[in-house]
Amino acid sequence: MIIFLVRRLVSLAPTLLGITLVAFSILNLLPEDPGATWRGAAPSAETVQRLRTELGADRPTLARYGLWLGALLRGDLGRSLRDGRQVTSILAEALPWSLLLNLGAICLIYGFAIPFGLYSALVPGSRADRIGAVLLLVLYALPSFAAALLLQETFAVRLGLLPLQGVSRGPDGATPVDLLRHLVLPTVCLALSGWAFVARYARASFRSAMGQEFLRVARSKGLSRWRAARHLTASAAVPLVTLVTVILPGLVGGSVIVEQAFSWPGLGRLYLAALEGRDYPVVLALTLLSAVAVLLGQLVTDLFYMVVDPRLRQRLLAGSSGA
């Protein structure tokens, strides 16, 4: 297990390096000089020169990459061009909000997708199953920003049930209940597409699992459908967890849209603001972080899979000791 973990981490290193390279080279297409975007009216030529030196903009690209990478390894992401604050502290402020939103969405996705898939696999062809299938297709095809507007229009504007946007009513309203109320719409919105995806997958995989020999035997010996479902869940639900790696890029990217639509003070909204203000160090850090988040998600899923599936664990261990 430890051996596997170490090997896995080592194999991640080149990918991580590649991620930094890709992020850096895309952002270096920037036609403008990062030194000239410092906020304030017409900086003097001297200031611009000083900033250029400070930011390393007067050096060749490769040297800049080296400098940036070196700083990155020391945990230094540079300073924001907007207000001169450390990028790390800006990110640290926004990160909890995004984590809350994304973890909430993942819980929501699985909390609803697996029971849904199980139910529709147990009663295939029923009216509920068919209506569910259409509903899933609709939700699957609904882009998150459109879903956000529909949810806001319905639940906040017309019905007035939930707050329209933001994280709290005001400085005095920052209670847990108030936070939860603000969390509902963005989380649901972020979860919709992934939920539809996982549920459709769950439906198919539960249904094919229903045809397995051991279940047919169990059913023919008089086990009820619902009891049989218990045996089914373990074998068919575990692979569904690996789908996290598939939905993760969509979730992280979708946060940008959802956070913007709901004025949620997370990393996604920070990203858009940084793009608009050409806040180069913040944009670079966030681009990097999005890919690293996806990579970490893959790693965690791998480990989870190893923990729950003894067969895989044995195979991997045999493989690693043989190598």
Binding site: T15, T287, A291
Partner: peptide, 23 residues
């Protein structure tokens, strides 16, 4: 390996960065 690396980036994040970076 390059494909694996690029696949780590959420397409929307990549697109936003590219559009801004290219002016």
């Amino acid at each position: 390996r390059l494909a694996d690396i690029v696949a780590c980036f959420p397409p929307l994040v990549l697109a936003l960065a590219f559009i801004t970076a290219s002016g």
